[in-house]
Design a protein around this nucleic acid. Structure first.
Lengths: 239, 239
DNA sequence: CGCCCGGTTGACAGATATCAAGCGTCGTGG
DNA sequence: CCACGACGCTTGATATCTGTCAACCGGGCG
Protein backbone atom coordinates (compact mmCIF):
# COMPACT_ATOMS: atom_id res chain seq x y z
CA UNK A 1 0.00 0.00 0.00
CA UNK A 2 2.45 2.61 -1.18
CA UNK A 3 1.96 6.35 -1.20
CA UNK A 4 -0.65 6.37 1.55
CA UNK A 5 -1.37 9.88 2.66
CA UNK A 6 0.07 10.14 6.14
CA UNK A 7 -2.07 13.08 7.20
CA UNK A 8 -5.21 10.96 7.51
CA UNK A 9 -3.77 7.55 8.10
CA UNK A 10 -5.36 5.94 11.17
CA UNK A 11 -2.25 4.00 12.05
CA UNK A 12 -1.55 2.56 15.43
CA UNK A 13 1.27 4.37 17.17
CA UNK A 14 4.23 2.52 18.52
CA UNK A 15 5.07 4.44 21.66
CA UNK A 16 7.24 1.65 23.02
CA UNK A 17 9.77 2.11 20.24
CA UNK A 18 9.39 5.87 19.89
CA UNK A 19 12.68 7.58 20.66
CA UNK A 20 10.80 10.35 22.45
CA UNK A 21 8.81 8.17 24.83
CA UNK A 22 10.96 9.09 27.80
CA UNK A 23 9.88 12.72 27.37
CA UNK A 24 6.25 11.88 26.70
CA UNK A 25 3.27 10.27 28.38
CA UNK A 26 4.64 6.68 28.42
CA UNK A 27 7.51 7.76 30.68
CA UNK A 28 6.41 5.98 33.83
CA UNK A 29 4.18 3.33 32.28
CA UNK A 30 4.83 -0.36 31.71
CA UNK A 31 4.92 -1.81 28.20
CA UNK A 32 1.36 -3.10 28.64
CA UNK A 33 0.06 0.22 29.88
CA UNK A 34 1.78 1.99 27.03
CA UNK A 35 0.06 -0.33 24.59
CA UNK A 36 -3.29 0.68 26.06
CA UNK A 37 -2.25 4.27 25.53
CA UNK A 38 -1.31 3.59 21.92
CA UNK A 39 -4.78 2.30 21.25
CA UNK A 40 -6.43 5.61 22.01
CA UNK A 41 -4.07 7.58 19.78
CA UNK A 42 -6.13 7.57 16.66
CA UNK A 43 -3.80 8.95 14.09
CA UNK A 44 -0.58 10.56 13.28
CA UNK A 45 -0.85 13.87 11.55
CA UNK A 46 1.55 15.72 9.31
CA UNK A 47 1.36 19.49 9.04
CA UNK A 48 3.28 21.67 6.65
CA UNK A 49 5.13 24.90 7.37
CA UNK A 50 2.62 27.65 8.10
CA UNK A 51 -0.29 25.27 8.68
CA UNK A 52 -2.38 25.57 11.82
CA UNK A 53 -2.43 22.59 14.16
CA UNK A 54 -5.34 24.33 15.83
CA UNK A 55 -6.75 27.82 15.85
CA UNK A 56 -7.41 30.23 18.67
CA UNK A 57 -10.62 29.22 20.48
CA UNK A 58 -10.95 25.93 18.62
CA UNK A 59 -12.85 23.49 20.87
CA UNK A 60 -10.40 21.41 22.87
CA UNK A 61 -10.31 17.75 21.97
CA UNK A 62 -6.71 16.71 21.67
CA UNK A 63 -3.37 16.93 23.38
CA UNK A 64 -0.69 16.87 20.71
CA UNK A 65 2.72 15.25 21.08
CA UNK A 66 5.28 16.52 18.62
CA UNK A 67 7.15 13.66 16.96
CA UNK A 68 9.21 15.83 14.67
CA UNK A 69 9.38 19.44 13.61
CA UNK A 70 8.41 22.51 15.58
CA UNK A 71 5.57 24.91 16.30
CA UNK A 72 4.88 28.38 17.59
CA UNK A 73 1.83 29.21 19.69
CA UNK A 74 0.43 32.66 19.18
CA UNK A 75 -2.61 34.85 19.29
CA UNK A 76 -3.26 37.98 17.30
CA UNK A 77 -4.99 40.88 19.00
CA UNK A 78 -7.76 43.02 17.58
CA UNK A 79 -5.34 45.20 15.62
CA UNK A 80 -3.92 42.14 13.88
CA UNK A 81 -0.66 42.29 15.78
CA UNK A 82 0.72 38.88 16.53
CA UNK A 83 2.23 37.86 19.83
CA UNK A 84 4.09 34.58 20.16
CA UNK A 85 3.65 32.83 23.50
CA UNK A 86 6.06 29.96 22.94
CA UNK A 87 7.97 27.62 20.69
CA UNK A 88 7.61 23.84 20.83
CA UNK A 89 9.95 21.16 19.50
CA UNK A 90 9.91 17.38 19.19
CA UNK A 91 9.04 15.47 22.35
CA UNK A 92 7.00 18.38 23.72
CA UNK A 93 3.28 18.37 24.32
CA UNK A 94 0.76 20.97 23.23
CA UNK A 95 -2.72 21.74 24.55
CA UNK A 96 -2.56 21.41 28.35
CA UNK A 97 -3.62 25.03 28.74
CA UNK A 98 -6.86 24.26 26.88
CA UNK A 99 -8.23 21.69 29.33
CA UNK A 100 -9.86 24.08 31.75
CA UNK A 101 -11.42 26.48 29.26
CA UNK A 102 -12.36 23.67 26.83
CA UNK A 103 -10.79 25.67 24.00
CA UNK A 104 -7.26 26.44 22.89
CA UNK A 105 -6.20 29.83 24.28
CA UNK A 106 -3.61 30.20 21.50
CA UNK A 107 -3.22 29.00 17.94
CA UNK A 108 -0.42 26.58 17.06
CA UNK A 109 1.36 27.02 13.74
CA UNK A 110 4.01 24.72 12.28
CA UNK A 111 7.39 26.37 11.72
CA UNK A 112 8.41 23.54 9.38
CA UNK A 113 6.89 20.31 8.13
CA UNK A 114 6.07 18.51 11.35
CA UNK A 115 4.52 15.32 12.59
CA UNK A 116 2.35 14.99 15.69
CA UNK A 117 0.46 12.32 17.64
CA UNK A 118 -3.12 13.33 18.27
CA UNK A 119 -4.24 12.19 21.73
CA UNK A 120 -7.99 12.46 22.48
CA UNK A 121 -8.14 13.95 25.94
CA UNK A 122 -11.45 12.38 26.96
CA UNK A 123 -10.12 8.94 26.19
CA UNK A 124 -6.90 9.77 27.97
CA UNK A 125 -8.79 10.78 31.11
CA UNK A 126 -10.89 7.64 30.92
CA UNK A 127 -7.78 5.50 30.63
CA UNK A 128 -6.37 7.39 33.60
CA UNK A 129 -9.17 6.01 35.74
CA UNK A 130 -7.85 2.49 35.25
CA UNK A 131 -4.18 3.50 35.24
CA UNK A 132 -3.76 6.08 38.03
CA UNK A 133 -0.08 6.37 37.13
CA UNK A 134 -1.18 7.93 33.85
CA UNK A 135 -2.98 10.77 35.64
CA UNK A 136 0.05 11.19 37.82
CA UNK A 137 2.19 11.35 34.70
CA UNK A 138 -0.01 14.03 33.13
CA UNK A 139 0.22 16.07 36.31
CA UNK A 140 3.98 15.69 36.30
CA UNK A 141 4.31 16.78 32.68
CA UNK A 142 2.07 19.78 33.32
CA UNK A 143 4.16 20.70 36.35
CA UNK A 144 7.29 20.40 34.23
CA UNK A 145 5.82 22.78 31.71
CA UNK A 146 4.90 25.21 34.49
CA UNK A 147 8.39 25.20 35.97
CA UNK A 148 10.28 25.27 32.65
CA UNK A 149 8.19 28.30 31.91
CA UNK A 150 9.06 29.80 28.60
CA UNK A 151 8.77 33.26 29.94
CA UNK A 152 10.66 36.32 28.97
CA UNK A 153 12.04 38.21 31.94
CA UNK A 154 10.64 41.69 31.37
CA UNK A 155 13.47 43.16 33.46
CA UNK A 156 16.19 41.68 31.29
CA UNK A 157 17.96 43.61 28.55
CA UNK A 158 17.52 42.61 24.92
CA UNK A 159 20.87 40.79 24.98
CA UNK A 160 20.03 38.96 28.20
CA UNK A 161 16.72 37.83 26.70
CA UNK A 162 18.35 36.52 23.54
CA UNK A 163 21.17 34.78 25.42
CA UNK A 164 18.65 33.14 27.76
CA UNK A 165 16.54 32.09 24.80
CA UNK A 166 19.49 30.44 23.05
CA UNK A 167 20.55 28.64 26.23
CA UNK A 168 17.01 27.39 26.83
CA UNK A 169 16.81 26.05 23.28
CA UNK A 170 20.23 24.47 23.68
CA UNK A 171 19.14 22.63 26.82
CA UNK A 172 15.97 21.42 25.13
CA UNK A 173 17.90 20.08 22.15
CA UNK A 174 20.34 18.37 24.47
CA UNK A 175 17.54 16.51 26.27
CA UNK A 176 16.49 15.17 22.90
CA UNK A 177 19.93 13.83 22.14
CA UNK A 178 20.92 16.62 19.78
CA UNK A 179 24.00 18.76 20.15
CA UNK A 180 23.57 21.57 22.66
CA UNK A 181 26.30 23.56 20.90
CA UNK A 182 25.19 23.40 17.31
CA UNK A 183 21.62 23.49 16.10
CA UNK A 184 19.26 24.99 13.60
CA UNK A 185 16.70 27.61 14.56
CA UNK A 186 13.32 26.89 13.06
CA UNK A 187 12.02 30.41 13.56
CA UNK A 188 12.85 33.67 11.80
CA UNK A 189 14.56 36.65 13.42
CA UNK A 190 11.19 38.38 13.34
CA UNK A 191 9.52 35.52 15.22
CA UNK A 192 12.28 35.49 17.82
CA UNK A 193 11.83 39.23 18.22
CA UNK A 194 8.07 38.96 18.62
CA UNK A 195 8.50 36.27 21.24
CA UNK A 196 11.28 38.09 23.12
CA UNK A 197 9.66 41.50 22.88
CA UNK A 198 12.43 43.09 20.85
CA UNK A 199 12.52 44.46 17.30
CA UNK A 200 13.76 42.30 14.44
CA UNK A 201 16.55 44.78 13.78
CA UNK A 202 17.70 44.52 17.37
CA UNK A 203 17.76 40.72 17.17
CA UNK A 204 19.89 40.99 14.08
CA UNK A 205 22.25 43.49 15.69
CA UNK A 206 22.62 41.25 18.74
CA UNK A 207 23.51 38.24 16.59
CA UNK A 208 26.13 40.40 14.87
CA UNK A 209 27.57 41.41 18.20
CA UNK A 210 27.65 37.81 19.45
CA UNK A 211 29.44 36.88 16.24
CA UNK A 212 32.12 39.59 16.53
CA UNK A 213 32.60 38.72 20.21
CA UNK A 214 33.13 35.08 19.21
CA UNK A 215 30.33 33.92 21.51
CA UNK A 216 27.90 32.61 18.91
CA UNK A 217 28.64 31.83 15.32
CA UNK A 218 25.57 32.07 13.14
CA UNK A 219 24.95 31.53 9.48
CA UNK A 220 21.35 31.87 8.46
CA UNK A 221 19.42 29.85 11.00
CA UNK A 222 22.31 27.58 11.85
CA UNK A 223 23.96 28.59 15.11
CA UNK A 224 27.00 27.36 16.98
CA UNK A 225 27.31 28.35 20.61
CA UNK A 226 31.05 28.91 20.89
CA UNK A 227 31.19 30.23 24.43
CA UNK A 228 28.37 28.89 26.56
CA UNK A 229 29.93 30.30 29.71
CA UNK A 230 29.92 33.83 28.34
CA UNK A 231 26.39 33.35 27.04
CA UNK A 232 25.38 32.31 30.54
CA UNK A 233 26.88 35.51 31.93
CA UNK A 234 25.11 37.63 29.31
CA UNK A 235 21.78 35.96 30.10
CA UNK A 236 21.98 37.15 33.70
CA UNK A 237 23.18 40.69 33.16
CA UNK A 238 20.88 43.68 33.24
CA UNK A 239 18.01 42.09 35.03
CA UNK B 1 -9.13 25.52 74.97
CA UNK B 2 -8.71 29.23 74.39
CA UNK B 3 -5.75 31.02 72.82
CA UNK B 4 -4.55 28.02 70.88
CA UNK B 5 -1.77 29.00 68.51
CA UNK B 6 -3.23 28.74 65.05
CA UNK B 7 0.08 28.30 63.28
CA UNK B 8 0.57 24.79 64.60
CA UNK B 9 -2.98 23.79 65.32
CA UNK B 10 -3.77 20.43 63.71
CA UNK B 11 -7.41 21.27 63.15
CA UNK B 12 -9.61 19.53 60.68
CA UNK B 13 -10.52 21.77 57.81
CA UNK B 14 -14.09 22.32 56.82
CA UNK B 15 -13.89 22.54 53.06
CA UNK B 16 -17.62 22.00 52.67
CA UNK B 17 -18.38 25.31 54.33
CA UNK B 18 -15.33 27.19 53.03
CA UNK B 19 -16.43 30.10 50.89
CA UNK B 20 -13.56 29.44 48.50
CA UNK B 21 -14.32 25.77 47.84
CA UNK B 22 -15.70 26.48 44.40
CA UNK B 23 -12.27 27.82 43.37
CA UNK B 24 -10.33 25.07 45.10
CA UNK B 25 -9.89 21.32 44.99
CA UNK B 26 -13.37 20.38 46.27
CA UNK B 27 -14.97 22.01 43.22
CA UNK B 28 -16.19 18.85 41.51
CA UNK B 29 -16.31 16.55 44.52
CA UNK B 30 -19.25 15.31 46.53
CA UNK B 31 -19.64 16.17 50.21
CA UNK B 32 -18.30 12.74 51.16
CA UNK B 33 -15.31 13.01 48.87
CA UNK B 34 -14.58 16.47 50.19
CA UNK B 35 -14.61 15.09 53.72
CA UNK B 36 -11.96 12.56 52.69
CA UNK B 37 -9.96 15.45 51.33
CA UNK B 38 -10.33 17.39 54.56
CA UNK B 39 -8.80 14.52 56.46
CA UNK B 40 -5.50 14.74 54.67
CA UNK B 41 -5.16 18.49 55.19
CA UNK B 42 -3.12 18.39 58.34
CA UNK B 43 -3.18 21.94 59.46
CA UNK B 44 -3.96 25.48 58.77
CA UNK B 45 -1.03 27.82 58.84
CA UNK B 46 -0.80 31.54 59.46
CA UNK B 47 2.10 33.52 58.02
CA UNK B 48 2.91 37.13 58.71
CA UNK B 49 3.87 39.84 56.25
CA UNK B 50 7.35 39.16 54.89
CA UNK B 51 7.43 35.54 56.09
CA UNK B 52 8.37 32.79 53.68
CA UNK B 53 5.75 30.15 53.02
CA UNK B 54 8.58 28.19 51.39
CA UNK B 55 12.03 29.04 50.14
CA UNK B 56 13.60 28.58 46.74
CA UNK B 57 14.62 24.92 46.32
CA UNK B 58 12.84 23.76 49.47
CA UNK B 59 11.86 20.10 49.01
CA UNK B 60 8.35 19.87 47.68
CA UNK B 61 5.84 18.38 50.08
CA UNK B 62 2.77 20.57 50.04
CA UNK B 63 0.36 22.32 47.75
CA UNK B 64 -0.90 25.41 49.52
CA UNK B 65 -4.39 26.84 49.20
CA UNK B 66 -4.66 30.47 50.21
CA UNK B 67 -7.60 31.03 52.55
CA UNK B 68 -6.92 34.70 53.12
CA UNK B 69 -4.20 37.21 52.37
CA UNK B 70 -1.75 37.25 49.48
CA UNK B 71 1.71 36.16 48.39
CA UNK B 72 4.39 36.91 45.87
CA UNK B 73 6.56 34.22 44.32
CA UNK B 74 10.08 35.26 43.50
CA UNK B 75 13.64 34.20 43.09
CA UNK B 76 16.75 36.29 43.52
CA UNK B 77 19.64 35.82 41.13
CA UNK B 78 23.31 35.60 41.98
CA UNK B 79 23.69 39.38 42.16
CA UNK B 80 20.91 39.60 44.74
CA UNK B 81 18.45 41.15 42.31
CA UNK B 82 14.93 39.98 42.93
CA UNK B 83 12.49 39.02 40.22
CA UNK B 84 8.84 38.46 40.99
CA UNK B 85 7.16 35.73 38.98
CA UNK B 86 3.62 36.19 40.24
CA UNK B 87 1.13 37.32 42.85
CA UNK B 88 -1.38 35.03 44.51
CA UNK B 89 -4.58 35.88 46.37
CA UNK B 90 -7.21 33.99 48.34
CA UNK B 91 -8.66 30.94 46.65
CA UNK B 92 -5.53 30.40 44.59
CA UNK B 93 -3.20 27.44 44.87
CA UNK B 94 0.57 27.49 45.19
CA UNK B 95 3.14 24.81 44.43
CA UNK B 96 2.01 23.05 41.25
CA UNK B 97 5.23 24.02 39.53
CA UNK B 98 7.22 22.12 42.16
CA UNK B 99 5.75 18.68 41.48
CA UNK B 100 8.05 17.68 38.65
CA UNK B 101 11.32 18.95 40.07
CA UNK B 102 10.42 17.87 43.64
CA UNK B 103 11.43 21.32 44.88
CA UNK B 104 9.89 24.78 44.74
CA UNK B 105 11.35 26.71 41.79
CA UNK B 106 10.48 30.02 43.46
CA UNK B 107 10.12 31.26 47.01
CA UNK B 108 6.70 32.39 48.26
CA UNK B 109 6.54 35.39 50.57
CA UNK B 110 3.44 36.75 52.30
CA UNK B 111 2.51 40.30 51.33
CA UNK B 112 0.29 40.59 54.41
CA UNK B 113 -0.77 38.35 57.27
CA UNK B 114 -2.21 35.36 55.46
CA UNK B 115 -3.75 31.99 56.15
CA UNK B 116 -3.19 28.86 54.08
CA UNK B 117 -4.28 25.22 53.99
CA UNK B 118 -1.33 22.88 53.74
CA UNK B 119 -2.13 19.92 51.49
CA UNK B 120 0.37 17.03 51.53
CA UNK B 121 0.82 16.16 47.87
CA UNK B 122 1.67 12.49 48.40
CA UNK B 123 -1.55 11.97 50.35
CA UNK B 124 -3.44 13.92 47.73
CA UNK B 125 -2.12 11.68 44.94
CA UNK B 126 -2.95 8.60 46.99
CA UNK B 127 -6.48 9.84 47.52
CA UNK B 128 -6.69 10.51 43.80
CA UNK B 129 -6.28 6.80 43.15
CA UNK B 130 -9.61 6.10 44.87
CA UNK B 131 -11.27 9.29 43.65
CA UNK B 132 -10.28 9.72 39.97
CA UNK B 133 -12.31 12.92 39.86
CA UNK B 134 -9.77 14.43 42.23
CA UNK B 135 -6.92 13.84 39.79
CA UNK B 136 -9.08 15.26 37.06
CA UNK B 137 -9.71 18.29 39.25
CA UNK B 138 -6.01 18.83 39.89
CA UNK B 139 -5.35 18.65 36.15
CA UNK B 140 -8.13 21.15 35.54
CA UNK B 141 -6.78 23.58 38.12
CA UNK B 142 -3.28 23.29 36.70
CA UNK B 143 -4.63 23.92 33.22
CA UNK B 144 -6.47 26.95 34.52
CA UNK B 145 -3.25 28.29 35.96
CA UNK B 146 -1.48 27.67 32.64
CA UNK B 147 -4.11 29.51 30.62
CA UNK B 148 -4.58 32.40 33.07
CA UNK B 149 -0.87 32.79 32.80
CA UNK B 150 0.36 35.71 34.81
CA UNK B 151 2.71 36.73 32.10
CA UNK B 152 3.89 40.14 31.16
CA UNK B 153 3.70 40.79 27.45
CA UNK B 154 7.24 41.90 26.67
CA UNK B 155 6.01 43.76 23.59
CA UNK B 156 3.58 45.89 25.56
CA UNK B 157 4.36 49.43 26.69
CA UNK B 158 4.72 50.22 30.37
CA UNK B 159 1.17 51.63 30.43
CA UNK B 160 -0.27 48.60 28.65
CA UNK B 161 1.44 46.31 31.15
CA UNK B 162 0.08 48.20 34.14
CA UNK B 163 -3.43 48.47 32.69
CA UNK B 164 -3.44 44.75 31.93
CA UNK B 165 -2.18 43.99 35.45
CA UNK B 166 -4.95 46.04 37.07
CA UNK B 167 -7.61 44.41 34.91
CA UNK B 168 -6.30 40.93 35.70
CA UNK B 169 -6.38 41.69 39.42
CA UNK B 170 -9.86 43.13 39.06
CA UNK B 171 -11.13 39.95 37.41
CA UNK B 172 -9.55 37.79 40.08
CA UNK B 173 -11.16 39.82 42.86
CA UNK B 174 -14.50 39.63 41.10
CA UNK B 175 -14.38 35.81 40.97
CA UNK B 176 -13.93 35.86 44.73
CA UNK B 177 -17.01 37.99 45.24
CA UNK B 178 -15.16 41.23 45.83
CA UNK B 179 -15.71 44.42 43.90
CA UNK B 180 -13.95 44.46 40.54
CA UNK B 181 -13.92 48.27 40.58
CA UNK B 182 -12.55 49.01 44.01
CA UNK B 183 -9.87 47.05 45.77
CA UNK B 184 -6.71 47.27 47.76
CA UNK B 185 -3.33 46.39 46.30
CA UNK B 186 -1.30 44.24 48.67
CA UNK B 187 2.00 44.96 46.91
CA UNK B 188 4.17 48.06 46.80
CA UNK B 189 4.83 50.14 43.69
CA UNK B 190 8.33 48.67 43.68
CA UNK B 191 6.97 45.11 43.69
CA UNK B 192 4.57 45.91 40.86
CA UNK B 193 7.46 47.37 38.93
CA UNK B 194 9.67 44.35 39.50
CA UNK B 195 6.90 42.04 38.34
CA UNK B 196 5.98 44.16 35.32
CA UNK B 197 9.55 44.92 34.32
CA UNK B 198 9.28 48.68 34.77
CA UNK B 199 10.96 51.06 37.21
CA UNK B 200 9.19 52.10 40.41
CA UNK B 201 9.27 55.71 39.27
CA UNK B 202 7.55 54.79 36.03
CA UNK B 203 4.83 52.90 37.91
CA UNK B 204 4.28 55.98 40.01
CA UNK B 205 4.16 58.26 36.97
CA UNK B 206 1.67 55.95 35.26
CA UNK B 207 -0.63 55.98 38.30
CA UNK B 208 -0.44 59.77 38.26
CA UNK B 209 -1.38 59.84 34.60
CA UNK B 210 -4.28 57.42 35.12
CA UNK B 211 -5.45 59.67 37.95
CA UNK B 212 -5.36 62.90 35.90
CA UNK B 213 -7.07 61.13 33.00
CA UNK B 214 -9.83 60.02 35.39
CA UNK B 215 -9.29 56.36 34.52
CA UNK B 216 -8.07 55.09 37.88
CA UNK B 217 -8.36 56.84 41.20
CA UNK B 218 -5.68 55.76 43.63
CA UNK B 219 -4.89 56.67 47.17
CA UNK B 220 -1.97 54.75 48.62
CA UNK B 221 -2.74 51.13 47.79
CA UNK B 222 -6.47 51.62 47.48
CA UNK B 223 -7.54 51.86 43.85
CA UNK B 224 -10.84 52.56 42.12
CA UNK B 225 -11.11 51.67 38.46
CA UNK B 226 -13.25 54.51 37.16
CA UNK B 227 -13.13 53.72 33.45
CA UNK B 228 -12.67 50.01 32.83
CA UNK B 229 -13.36 50.44 29.13
CA UNK B 230 -10.53 52.92 28.72
CA UNK B 231 -8.27 50.72 30.82
CA UNK B 232 -9.07 47.86 28.46
CA UNK B 233 -8.05 50.01 25.50
CA UNK B 234 -4.81 51.04 27.20
CA UNK B 235 -3.98 47.42 27.97
CA UNK B 236 -4.03 46.55 24.27
CA UNK B 237 -2.16 49.54 22.88
CA UNK B 238 1.50 49.45 21.93
CA UNK B 239 1.84 45.73 21.75
C1' DC C 1 8.71 64.85 67.68
C1' DG C 2 11.64 63.04 64.42
C1' DC C 3 13.18 59.29 61.72
C1' DC C 4 12.40 56.15 58.03
C1' DC C 5 10.38 54.33 54.20
C1' DG C 6 7.32 54.36 50.39
C1' DG C 7 5.74 57.27 47.05
C1' DT C 8 5.97 61.28 43.82
C1' DT C 9 8.02 64.43 40.62
C1' DG C 10 11.78 66.38 37.69
C1' DA C 11 16.01 66.34 34.68
C1' DC C 12 18.81 63.76 32.01
C1' DA C 13 20.83 59.71 29.70
C1' DG C 14 20.77 55.49 27.45
C1' DA C 15 18.77 51.46 25.40
C1' DT C 16 15.97 50.14 21.91
C1' DA C 17 12.24 51.16 18.44
C1' DT C 18 11.44 53.12 14.15
C1' DC C 19 12.39 54.47 9.58
C1' DA C 20 15.14 53.64 5.64
C1' DA C 21 18.24 51.56 2.45
C1' DG C 22 20.82 47.85 0.73
C1' DC C 23 22.30 42.97 0.50
C1' DG C 24 22.21 38.02 0.19
C1' DT C 25 19.72 33.78 -0.45
C1' DC C 26 16.33 30.83 -1.93
C1' DG C 27 12.76 29.39 -4.84
C1' DT C 28 10.41 29.85 -9.15
C1' DG C 29 9.89 29.76 -13.81
C1' DG C 30 11.48 30.34 -18.30
C1' DC D 1 20.96 26.22 -16.08
C1' DC D 2 20.33 30.93 -15.37
C1' DA D 3 17.68 35.15 -14.34
C1' DC D 4 14.46 37.32 -11.63
C1' DG D 5 11.72 38.48 -7.71
C1' DA D 6 10.56 38.19 -3.06
C1' DC D 7 11.62 37.75 1.38
C1' DG D 8 14.55 37.58 5.28
C1' DC D 9 18.41 39.61 7.12
C1' DT D 10 21.74 43.26 8.05
C1' DT D 11 23.33 47.88 8.87
C1' DG D 12 22.85 52.95 9.61
C1' DA D 13 20.56 57.35 11.32
C1' DT D 14 17.30 59.25 14.19
C1' DA D 15 13.48 59.41 17.57
C1' DT D 16 11.28 57.97 21.74
C1' DC D 17 10.30 55.59 25.73
C1' DT D 18 11.72 54.42 29.98
C1' DG D 19 15.56 53.89 33.30
C1' DT D 20 18.60 56.30 36.37
C1' DC D 21 19.89 59.77 39.52
C1' DA D 22 18.28 63.13 42.64
C1' DA D 23 15.37 65.82 45.52
C1' DC D 24 11.28 66.22 48.00
C1' DC D 25 6.90 64.99 50.27
C1' DG D 26 3.98 62.68 53.62
C1' DG D 27 2.37 59.13 56.69
C1' DG D 28 3.34 55.70 60.19
C1' DC D 29 5.83 54.17 63.98
C1' DG D 30 8.91 54.23 67.73
Amino acid sequence: MPCMKESSKPIKQDCNTCSLSKLCLPLSLTTEETSALENIIKKQQTVKRGDYLFHYKDPFKFIYAIRSGSFKTCHSNSEGLETISGFYISGELLGFDAIHGKQYPDAAIALETSSVCQIPFDDLTLLGETIPKLHRQIIDLMSQKMSNKQIVNPNASAMARLAHFLLTLSARFQRRGYSPREFSLSMSRAEMGTFLGIATETVSRLFSKLQTDKIVESHHRQVILQDMRQLQILSCEDE
